[in-house]
């Protein structure tokens, strides 16, 4: 029960967090995993199997785009290159919306939990 609740919560928020990280700078998958872990103080430790489906959903919705790049920057073949994900204009708009909803929602959740109605 507890686990399910945590999973459901995470699922909705992760999409927004991935967008937020990509908004700061483009990253490849592994880098995103590291950045998520780092910026959450070690709380959000994801596996590839969780992250990539999120990235695919965002890419299919047009919020991010991916491109193959070698470590030096020029486009290359999948053999030696990394797939770098980048946020789009649409992604930024979606992110702004989600952050807005999140702030409102978490604010009211806090209010209910703290209140004595």
């Amino acid at each position: 029960m507890e686990q399910q609740f945590a999973r459901q919560l995470k699922k909705g928020a992760l999409e927004m967090l991935v967008l937020a990280l990509l908004d700061r700078r483009a990253s490849h998958g592994y880098e995103l995993l590291l950045r998520l872990k780092e910026s959450s103080g070690g709380q959000l430790v994801l596996k590839e199997g969780t992250l990539y489906p999120i990235l695919y959903r965002l890419e299919d919705d047009g919020c991010i785009v991916s491109a193959w790049q070698s470590p030096t920057g020029e486009p290359q073949t999948p053999k030696t290159a990394r797939k770098v994900y980048q946020i789009t204009g649409q992604g930024r708009a979606v992110l702004a919306e989600q952050v807005e909803v999140w702030r409102q929602f978490s604010g009211s959740v806090e209010q209910v939990l703290e209140g004595n109605a």
Partner: peptide, 15 residues
């Protein structure tokens, strides 16, 4: 898609 990303992941981790 997944296999491409995992290959890319492997490269990043090697880096």
């Amino acid at each position: 898609r997944i296999m491409n990303d995992l290959a890319s992941d492997f490269q990043s981790r090697r880096d």
